[in-house]
């Protein structure tokens, strides 16, 4: 299987121990074996279907409808100061 679990887990930002990777491996292998059946289906000249409703996007008028709610919203945040959401220092 070309499913590089540590690499994919990194892309998805999910910490996984060696044990967890070992435990999930056979389950993912089963799932991927089932999915691999897809590859054999002939889809020449078939257009992909991304949404069941082949309709067009509706557009909204350019109107400001929202008011300042940041105090309410930030009550739900794990770490806030000076109206800012805080994360460990990002070095650029």
């Amino acid at each position: 299987m070309s499913f590089d679990i540590p690499k994919v887990a990194y892309l998805a930002r999910i910490a996984m121990s060696e044990e967890e990777i070992a435990a999930v491996k056979p389950k993912l292998e089963n799932v991927m074996a089932m999915i691999d059946d897809l590859v054999k289906i002939d889809t020449t000249n078939v257009a992909p279907l991304a949404s069941p409703l082949e309709q067009y996007q509706t557009l909204r008028e350019d109107v400001v409808t929202e008011t300042d709610q940041h105090v309410t919203y930030q009550k739900l945040a794990p770490k806030v100061a000076a109206d800012l959401y805080l994360v460990p220092q990002v070095i650029e």
Binding site: A81, D83, Y85, L86, Q89, V90, E92
Partner: peptide
């Protein structure tokens, strides 16, 4: 925007 100088050892996020 990420603000790196507003709070010591933290980055502040203004959305």
């Amino acid at each position: 925007k990420s603000l790196h100088d507003a709070i010591p050892h933290m980055s502040g996020i203004d959305l």
